[in-house]
Design a protein around this nucleic acid. Sequence first.
DNA 1: TGACAGGGGGTGT
DNA 2: ACACCCCCTGTC
Length: 300
Amino acid sequence: MPADPWSDWQPLAGQPPLTAPVLAEILDGGQTFRWTARTDGTWQGVWSDCVARLKLQANGRLLWSAPAKLVVRAEKMLPGYLAGGRDFGALADTLPWRSDAHLARCLRAFPGLLIPRQPFGETLLCFLCSATKQIVQIKQMVALLAERHGKVFAQTGDTVLHRLPTWAELAEIPEPALRVCLLGFRARYIKETARFLAARPGWLEETEHLPYPAAKARLLELPGVGEKVADCVLLFGAGKLEAFPVDTWILKAMVRHYDLDGWSPAQVAHFGRTHFGPLAGLAQQYLFAWERAEARRGSA
DNA sequence: TGACAGGGGGTGT
DNA sequence: ACACCCCCTGTC
């Protein structure tokens, strides 16, 4: 395959202004695992069989670029990927920040924060990899899965671009071959989930389009998928903003900021859904961004 | 510079 | 409550 040059930078329509830290939070804050920061300050990301680069201008607007052969695809898919056709600013304004000083502070700190809408099946795969792993390690596993088991969909310069293996493809891969991708005990979850899905054509696609409670109940049937992973998959891969994943970070943050000493993850999840309402998942994203920034301040 | 603990964004029993 | 796996990070 001959090398394919990247297109000129083009403006991304209908995008609210952003700052570099907010863009980093969107692309590398633990919701997506296939974006990397390049040395020139731009970002490159892959999802399904799409690839794009993003560049933030001084005025907060984004420019994008794609390999010439994939420009049409990127132009069509990028807006939906980045915001899912939603006005996150307007959505955030409906959160109860007027009666919640901490939430108000988080909203002010990360203006323009949004939740990308990722492909459902890929999101499931990424979050099956995520148990007790930090972002760098999850990105590494996902990169190896793509490189070793995903189809090549483009080549640019000296970079060969792979998509992630589909669930049908994963079902054919022996577990030892998966383990080589640094998956550890997660390899078994992925293998068993792949087999489960292979036996049920259409199950995953149906699940994506079910209402939140029904979709979550179905995801919980999958081996390796518990409350937290199910909520992440629905929030990041199906646009269900009522999903409220409670991991150890959010648990600690909620206990501290909302005075919930001794509360269990399930109790905190219930509190979050009740307190933040139908867009609790968006609120969670702001709290999360705040905690990560706080942790960096603490260690600096 | 290089070895060595310790711990990690969870699930299942 | 603890095992599951094993790589990353910080520290000496």
